[in-house]
Design a protein around this nucleic acid. Structure first.
Lengths: 86, 86
DNA sequence: CATAAATATTCCCGTTCGGTAATATTCTGA
DNA sequence: TCAGAATATTACCGAACGGGAATATTTATG
């Protein structure tokens, strides 16, 4: 893939991870949070959500509000994309 | 981009659209639904959600449950992806 | 243009989200 | 191993989601 990106001059090509459920998102969020060396409480403060929300998000609770999830993802430097199945 | 995909033999490369809010998703859903020649009511039935939900989704209501949004997207042949901001 | 079809909005209602605080449980590092 | 830190869960409560039906509004059609 490195050769490919060099050939095309696309050194900064984004890598998309397909998401099938909220559990997967929760895992990504937790991993990133730990990488940043933060507790859930600190992360909640950063994202301006409650500690409870952060805990439930990381544990993959399915029925959370889309806008709040987006808020956390954005604060953590993630972006969401939509594509069509091939 | 066409030349690029041919060079790499990646004719089936997914194209990701970055999403910043639920409004954008709603627009995509509506566009797809119309393309499929369905009314909101029919689409709601297909996705097993209420007509009200479909209407609100298409109009970009922010506080909807993630799992239900995902359900509709999946029924419409969309996939969700996460990437990191560069 | 009139009317039917489609969509948006309101109503009623049961359920649940999520903030905050408290408490129970689990994890971590010395 | 154990104490403290971190996380998960529970309790209380107000706000609001969403199903289904009804109604208002908008759009499409002949």
């Amino acid at each position: 893939m490195d050769t490919k990106t060099l050939i095309l001059g696309q050194k900064n090509k984004k890598t998309w991870i397909e998401i099938h459920n909220l559990k997967a998102i929760g895992q990504m969020v937790r991993k990133k949070r730990k990488k940043m060396g933060m507790t859930q409480a600190e992360a909640a403060g950063l994202c301006n959500v409650g500690a409870r929300f952060m805990s439930e998000l990381e544990n993959g609770k399915a029925t959370m509000h889309f806008d709040k999830i987006m808020k956390v993802l954005r604060s953590f430097g993630f972006i969401i994309g939509i594509s069509e199945r091939l």
